[in-house]
Design a protein around this nucleic acid. Structure first.
Lengths: 241, 241
DNA sequence: ACAAATTTTTAGACTCATCTAAAAAATTAT
DNA sequence: ATAATTTTTTAGATGAGTCTAAAAATTTGT
């Protein structure tokens, strides 16, 4: 539904460029896969898996997106978003994360309940709406899961976080994000009484299985975390982000 | 996108009934045309005009909606929403109007700027979202144009308003709604400094063209309204709704 | 380096929502 | 009451987005 108007001054020709709900989902998927891939071309198969679709369908859509100059595509060699494609992706991510803030901060949703609703809201097309929502929320820089919110220009804060599983005993850390957004995982963290911004100290590391004993907010109680869980908890050093 | 789960207890059979964005627009259109028609069957043509579509396309969609028991349809004799159809219509209208309140009250949009955005937001599918939004807004009973907001069950306040063009000189009125939602019209009322809830007294009525001279909020100044404008301004008696 | 396995694309088909043109039914006007 | 007009439906076509099955290209393993 997103509408872009591009003026071709040479032809005095106005091309109204729209991206559908469906296209936007492909763009987002490609953006995320590029991130994982360190900007190497993304395969049709990976997109298909991410979107629970058949590879053949992906090939079709990729052709349409290439036509619209949203991705660059060489047969059998995967796709990369163009600059235009990246900008579209970032506006969708901006909207998604702003809506998540709205749902949690204003409507009192839990951090594990907002993803599906934000998946719908991210496709609402109105620049004024996004900017007014941003102001209403106080121009937040991070969403309820600690993910950075791109600004109007698509700039995002880079946070130097590491997984808690790679942290060491001597330091104090701040819980700043998660690398797993599944409801089950988020709910589990909630039962541990662990929320974004909490201080985490590692009491001990089990050499055998990598599990951790941690102290949250310097309390007197300990929590035990499996390595698997710790690997999805992102932290940064307490002093100096 | 709206999802309804209906349990057929006889068959132990779960049918998941979804209404698409497109279907929802038809349902809304039919609902509004039924209102205008005093619940007489709505013609395919009228729907086509309302939705800027060809009558043939409407016939097709009507058949699909009849299949889903959302409308009752007899060839060549128009359609009526079933109870199920009416319920869907009312939830869409509820969402539309709640979002309009949000946009005006929380995001500071003008009353003439919200319609298009609400047309998109009304299709977001999440009951929890609607109920939390409703609470966040303080369970408003009217939207920014004075239209009643249906409650969860689809009940709406009935307001006994009359067009200002049918009012008389002896009474004090309260401006309670509009019967024209066009941006141009709403902006015009704004330039007159006329907002919902204002007191209106009729100073004089021009017998020839039906135009009015009115006083807003007992101020010392007068405003002139054509009959055409007055006919779209809805009012009720000041004492007793 | 080449055969086997895997990935990607092509080809052809399907559904949804739309269209145009023509046929059928209902309404209206004489 | 029937002819003319209007409305509605049918029939056939189109485009977006998906599918399956088969063909083509690439990658992997020896």
């Amino acid at each position: 539904m997103s509408l872009k108007i591009c003026l071709d001054l040479y032809n005095y020709y106005i091309c109204v460029m729209e991206t559908s709900f469906t296209e936007e989902n492909y763009i987002k998927a490609i953006f995320k896969l590029e991130e994982l891939n360190q900007s190497k071309a993304v395969s049709t198969n990976d997109i298909a898996i991410k979107l629970s679709m058949q590879p053949a369908s992906v090939t079709d859509m990729i052709k349409r997106l290439a036509e619209k100059k949203i991705v660059s595509y060489k047969k059998y060699h995967g796709v990369l978003l163009t600059l235009k494609g990246k900008k579209i992706a970032l506006t969708i991510i901006r909207k998604h994360r702003l809506w998540e803030v709205f749902l949690v901060k204003k409507l009192n949703f839990k951090w594990d309940e907002v993803h599906e609703i934000a998946e719908q809201l991210e496709h609402i097309n109105s620049n004024e709406l996004v900017e007014k929502l941003d102001d209403f929320l106080g121009n937040p820089k991070f969403d309820p899961h600690g993910d950075a919110i791109p600004d109007k220009e698509g700039n995002m804060r880079v946070v130097n976080s590491i997984p808690l599983s790679a942290a060491n005993k001597k330091q104090s850390y701040v819980f700043s994000g998660v690398s797993n957004h599944e409801t089950k995982f988020l709910k589990y963290l909630t039962t541990l009484n662990l929320s974004l911004g909490n201080t985490i100290n590692i009491d001990s590391i089990n050499d055998y299985d990598g599990s951790l004993k941690i102290v949250i907010n310097n309390s007197k109680t300990h929590e035990f975390l499996s390595e698997q869980v710790a690997s999805h908890i992102l932290v940064h050093l307490k002093n100096g982000k």
